[in-house]
């Protein structure tokens, strides 16, 4: 029985590694979905081997749960997330991430400066405000 355990474990581990490599490479979301679905099946098989080795029956519900969860995941991805924008299916390089972050920060700054304008973002006259804003308003009034 030990030899059987070793053989099964080696085969299943190799299968899991290859499936994970495919899930990492993609290239599309659906390839990853298929790979992860297969990974679920491999894990169910590993649980079965473990149960057969130890003779325990309390891990059997784990298999029921796993076989259901894998289905829900792949259907959800196929239904809602299958259409991905061009170029989305790859890992960004460090420079690209930096550029994206810079763009996001600029957009946020632009938004904030637009909102902070006294004619757009300010509260009505006589409104209750935070302390720092009130002081600022006082300054402005004195300036006028």
């Amino acid at each position: 029985m030990t030899a059987v355990l070793v053989v099964c474990t080696v085969l299943l581990t190799a299968a899991a590694v290859m499936v994970i490599v495919r899930a990492e490479r993609g290239p599309s979301m659906l390839d990853r979905t298929i790979a992860l679905d297969t990974l679920t099946a491999v894990v169910v098989g590993a649980v079965a081997v473990h149960a057969a080795w130890t003779g325990r029956t309390d891990t059997v519900p784990v298999m029921v749960a796993l076989s259901l969860v894998g289905f829900v995941g792949s259907v959800a991805i196929a239904r809602f997330a299958a259409i991905e924008p061009e170029g989305e299916g790859r890992v960004l390089s460090r420079e690209e991430v930096a550029a994206l972050e810079l763009e996001r920060l600029r957009a946020e700054d632009a938004e904030r400066s637009a909102v902070d304008d006294e004619h757009h973002g300010g509260a009505a006259e006589g409104d209750v405000r935070r302390l720092d804003e009130t002081v600022q308003d006082g300054d402005e009034e004195r300036d006028r």
Binding site: V4, L11, L12, A15, M18, V19, R22, I34, V42, V49
Partner: peptide, 20 residues
């Protein structure tokens, strides 16, 4: 049982190879 388990593991291995 051992034969079935090994055959199932071999199929899982084949699937991993095919996916890759």
């Amino acid at each position: 049982a051992a034969g079935c388990l090994i055959a199932g593991s071999a199929l899982a291995f084949a699937a991993g190879l095919g996916l890759l």
